[in-house]
């Protein structure tokens, strides 16, 4: 996975970058299965590797497939990224150990979710649709809004472009 990311950062041919992004998404889905998040892994495999690859290719079809050579050396972003990484790693030292049953995340509301109050075996579905249905309503609305935004952006037929062509002629 690390290798895939490094190659993504280096490669300039956007087509291979997009295929690599799909590979990366599948690897991420595998990691998520290993971390017991089966629902999330399923979504990541379908969305990350399936739909977003198709969408990126669709957008690439409308744009140029080759990235321009960067005009300036990337030292400043590199230094900034390194500084951020060091800060974040320093911060992560204060977090609880991996797989610690006493960590705060396992204490608050989770025991109640796992009690199977509404007799739906898949807890993720139960929490998603029942305990936190306001959240899900919000998320659905966000997805809807994004779709509406895309319609607004891309619906307009080529009238402006045709006019520009006429001017050029």
């Amino acid at each position: 996975m690390v290798l895939a990311v490094l190659v993504i950062a280096r490669t300039r041919n956007l087509f291979s970058v997009i295929v690599l992004t799909g590979v990366y998404s599948f690897l991420m889905a595998t990691v998520l299965v290993a971390l017991d998040a089966v629902d999330v892994a399923m979504t990541e495999a379908a969305v990350g590797a399936g739909v977003s690859t198709v969408l990126l290719l669709g957008a690439l079809h409308l744009c140029k497939a080759e990235e321009a050579k960067p005009a300036h050396r990337p030292w400043i972003p590199l230094a900034l990224s390194m500084a951020t990484a060091l800060l974040l790693i320093y911060g992560s030292l204060g977090l609880p150990e991996f797989s610690d049953p006493d960590a705060p995340i396992h204490q608050h509301v989770t025991p109640r979710y796992l009690k199977n109050e509404i007799e739906v075996p898949n807890v993720v579905t139960a929490v998603l649709a029942s305990f936190r249905s306001y959240d899900t309503l919000g998320e659905t609305t966000v997805v809807f809004t994004a779709g509406a935004g895309i319609i607004a952006l891309l619906r307009r037929r080529k009238t402006p472009k045709n006019e520009r062509d006429k001017h050029a002629e």
Partner: peptide, 14 residues
């Protein structure tokens, strides 16, 4: 813990 799974599930689609 199922809670982060729920949050991330929606985050992926969004």
């Amino acid at each position: 813990n199922p809670l982060p799974h729920v949050l991330i599930l929606t985050a992926i689609v969004v």
